[in-house]
Amino acid sequence: MIRVVILEDEAPARRKLHSFLEKTKEDFVVIKEIETVLDAINFFEKKPEIDLILSDIELRDGNVFEVYNKIENSAPIIFVTAYDSFWMNAFETNGIAYVLKPYAFLQFEKALKKYASLKNGLALTPNDLLHKIDTYYQSKIVEQTNYKEYIPIKASSGIYFLKVSEIIFIKSDYGVVFAYDLNNKKHVLNQTSLKEIQETLNPTQFFKINRSELVNKNYVQKINRYTKNTVAIQIKTHVLKTSQNKTASFNSWMGL
């Protein structure tokens, strides 16, 4: 029996992982589902017996590498995420595969086969393994061509298309997601969660600065310290603020 822990804060994403595990021929059992950094640290500090970790990057209260930098973990990790900018961090931990959302069963199955080969002692040397993982990741980036260029939006007069490159930021407010364009016009999107739209956008262009806002790097005009652990971001007439657990990763994303 292969004991699996899932680190994922979205229920639909967890259900998808369960479904794909069930489709395999291996005897997987999910012993724990974790949605926050704090719960993950508390869980791993008890040194549970784990065979495999399926991990997203951004959890409800922060970045998952806050967990892996604090705990001792010997279990291999398959990262399943919408972010393509953390692959080096992933392989500096116990990462063995990096599956980019949205993904199909075939992609997930390949990652599990990589785990099976390690489990059965078929891997060569750590350097060889790292090279193969790097090659696998690079091929996934090449395949990732489905970032949206236009977003269809329903209106009373029909459907129109908003150009993604002209969106300055996106905001979620009580289950309604808005996109603000270059003219500060607010568009109501069809998606009902920020994560749902985020997974369709290029992560080198858009970043989630807090629980409710995504910013477009191309329109960041000024960054000022707001509090000790947060910054204020000037985008046209708007001033947006990072959350404490996003500030460091936002600064890194901006190249600061």
Rank of each mutant, 00 (worst) to 15 (best):
N94H: 10
K154P: 01
V29D: 14
F206C: 09
L189A: 00
V164D: 00
I50G: 08
T204Y: 08
L189E: 01
N120R: 06
S193C: 00
S165C: 13
I2W: 12
F86H: 05
L38A: 15
L21T: 06
Q234N: 12
I133H: 12
A97R: 03
T145S: 10
V176S: 01
D128R: 08
K208H: 09
L7D: 05
N210C: 13
K113G: 05
P102S: 09
S252A: 11
R15L: 13
A75G: 10
K113E: 13
Q107A: 14
E22S: 15
T230V: 02
A97C: 07
N183V: 10
K246C: 10
K163C: 14
E92N: 15
T192A: 03
I153S: 03
D51C: 11
F161Y: 14
L54W: 01
A111S: 15
T81W: 03
E166D: 14
P12A: 01
K241W: 04
I209A: 06
I6Y: 00
K195V: 05
V5E: 00
Y174G: 06
E199C: 04
T227W: 05
P76R: 08
Y150R: 14
F250E: 05
Y180P: 05
Y98N: 00
S165T: 13
E8P: 04
P12T: 05
N69A: 14
N120W: 02
I170T: 05
